[in-house]
Design a protein around this nucleic acid. Sequence first.
DNA 1: TGATATGTTATCTT
DNA 2: CAAGATAACATATC
Length: 276
Amino acid sequence: MPELPEVETIKLQLEKYIKGSKIVDIEILNPKYEILNKSEIINSKITNIRRFAKQLSIDLDNKYSILIHVKMTGQLIYIGDKLKANNLSKKVIGGINGKHTHVVFQLDDGALYYNDVRQFGWVKIVKSEELIVNNFAPEPLKDLTLEYFTNLLSKSRRNIKVLLMDQSKIGGIGNIYANDALWLAKIRPQRIANSVQIDEQKALYKAIHTVLKAGLKYGGASEFAFVTPDGKEGEYQNHTLVYGHTGQLCSNCKKQKIEKFFLGSRGTYWCKLCQI
DNA sequence: TGATATGTTATCTT
DNA sequence: CAAGATAACATATC
């Protein structure tokens, strides 16, 4: 599901495909996705693409930004002069201009389609300056310091995995990378955060960086609905450390089978031998 | 066929 | 009161 590496992958492609394009029209195909102030941005030019945790900001030259959260099944797909031959993944259910296409941004050199099967994601227009004021939690690959991380863990009595996924505390970690980071750091997902010792905190801090970078390297995980703007899938789902490995032997100890249970109503995978 | 997948948040509980 | 826990959202898939 779209977490930091997936959304960053979308961002990198959008930079390539739509930066510099002009928005000539916006079509709303699903009334649920009606966008306030959409007339304000017709004929504006896309100047920049940014990512804040799992949110994307498409910045325009008229002081507005299009803010998008794809949640679990949202997809942004570009077709136009910069990408003509488009062999869409089967995960683009219904294709573009299908029943799950809710918004179409018509560009001077193509179009950007927003698809979302479950309609949990959102698209809105905000003033760019309001975005900067917004308080986003520290980013693991940017400004999350070990000091902040240590302090955060020592003050929480929640399960460590639930805490890692709390977007108000750390930006961008979701279920897949939380599972993998905890396995890599050899920490039980159900451990109470403030019971995690300093050496374990350091190992976890490092593991978070390792798994997120792996996710980026493979272009994100397409276990479910994730596709990139070119309509292709990522590869991280074939390189997960423990996520989705139920019943398989742990690749570290090679003795214990990976088990799955629910923690905070999210699928949680772990090796009971390696993770203490 | 009904259980399953998960990001966020409103609301309930401790 | 604050922190934590939980249900709800919508739908394709097997």
